[in-house]
Amino acid sequence: MSNRDYSLSDVVALLVESGDNASTFYRYSDDVPMPSVEVLSEIVEDLRTVLFPGYYGPSEITPDTMPYYIGSTLDRVERHLADQINRGYCFVCDKNKVDRCQDCETRSRNMARAFITKLPEIRELLLSDVEAAYDGDPAAKTHGETIFCYPSIRTMTNHRIAHELYKLGVDIIPRIIGEMAHSDTGIDIHPGATIGRSFFMDHGTGTVIGETCVIGDNVRVYQGVTLGAKSFPKGDDERLIKGLPRHPLVEDDVIIYAGATILGRVTIGKGAVIGGNVWITRDVPAGAQIVQSRAMQQSFSDGGGI
């Protein structure tokens, strides 16, 4: 039968038949809806208005009205987030064929409240990121410009929200929030990555930071930087072993220029400068400067670097 001979009923029958034995083809649950990307997007935007009031949300907020606005917004966020956390938890339970948790709604409400209590800490970290962006880019005329315009701040807002949810053990929701920023900015940060204060991604497009990466304070990276894994060990069943530390450790005050690729559980020492387009799979000492110079690469490799 050629393609032109297919009727609509033929196409439907073939699609159903081909999916009968494929667990990834569709997800069925008669009483548990999926997490909603649309609702999660609204939650993140509400949180953005709380973390940066006036820049996002109503611009006419005053010091007198701010407590009421923030309070009502967080009340809505907490309720909606608890529902999404519950949906994400049930999504994973169904996938793993685990018995339903009898107190999953209570668990989800507790997680949402625990997350809300972390918002002052998230705000403090984001303000340090804003300061780093303003200080690190001569083109930035005001701090507000970095909040409103810079992909680094937009991405880090999503990431710091997602990372707190990840630490609380929330299923799938942190990854969705991280992928929202990825779609918006081209910056891909796994919610498991631990990132210190005053972090700035200049331009940022194409930057990738893996799940088990740990980044210190006052670190700056440029576009196209990869902090990734070098190898993926397999278990006896030939499947990849999940959760192993496999991404770089970047210590305080490091600068990584555009296009650099750093792979594996290596340490980039404090104050090191990594030049553009270099490939690193071994530890870099504190204060080292690694550039694309044949003489410097040979000198450094003799000491155990690149």
Rank of each mutant, 00 (worst) to 15 (best):
S231Q: 13
I176V: 15
G216E: 01
T194F: 10
V219C: 12
P245E: 05
L263E: 05
G206Y: 13
I241E: 09
G228W: 06
H182C: 01
G186K: 03
A260E: 10
R265T: 10
S198M: 05
V219Q: 12
T212W: 11
I172W: 00
I241A: 01
R239G: 00
K230T: 11
F200K: 11
G216V: 02
T207I: 14
I215C: 09
L227F: 13
I187P: 04
I195L: 06
G224P: 05
S183D: 11
P245S: 11
K230V: 07
R265A: 07
T194Y: 08
T226Q: 05
D236L: 13
E251T: 01
S198C: 08
P191C: 12
I215T: 12
K234W: 01
A258G: 13
G196W: 08
Y222Q: 06
I215Q: 08
D217G: 13
G178V: 00
I187W: 00
G210T: 06
D184E: 15
V225K: 05
T261M: 03
I195Y: 05
P174V: 07
H182E: 02
D184Q: 14
I262G: 02
I262S: 02
T207M: 12
K234N: 10
R239A: 07
P174T: 07
I172V: 15
V214K: 14
L227K: 10
R175L: 14
I177D: 00
D253E: 14
K242H: 09
I189R: 11
V170P: 13
E211W: 04
G196E: 09
V254K: 08
P248A: 07
A260W: 09
V254L: 12
E211P: 00
K230R: 15
V208N: 08
T261Q: 02
L240N: 13
I256C: 08
G216L: 03
V221S: 05
D171K: 15
I172N: 00
P248L: 04
I189P: 04
V250Y: 04
V250Q: 06
I177N: 04
T185Q: 02
R197N: 13
T194S: 15
R239K: 15
I176D: 04
F199D: 05
T185M: 00
S231T: 14
D188S: 11
G235R: 04
K234G: 02
D171A: 15
H203M: 02
I215G: 09
G228P: 10
D171M: 15
L227R: 09
I176A: 03
S198P: 03
E238C: 11
V219G: 11
V208Q: 06
V250F: 07
A181W: 03
V250I: 15
M180I: 12
V219L: 10
P233F: 11
I177E: 01
P245A: 08
P233K: 14
I209H: 01
R239F: 12
I172T: 14
E179D: 15
I255Y: 04
H247M: 07
T194R: 15
G192I: 06
V170A: 10
G264Y: 06
A258F: 01
D252Q: 02
I173H: 09
I241C: 03
G216K: 06
A193R: 11
D188Y: 01
F199Y: 08
F232E: 06
P248G: 05
A229D: 10
G178I: 02
C213S: 15
G204C: 09
V170Y: 04
F232C: 12
I256Y: 07
V219A: 13
L244P: 01
D237T: 14
E251G: 01
I215D: 07
I256P: 08
G178C: 00
D188F: 03
G196T: 13
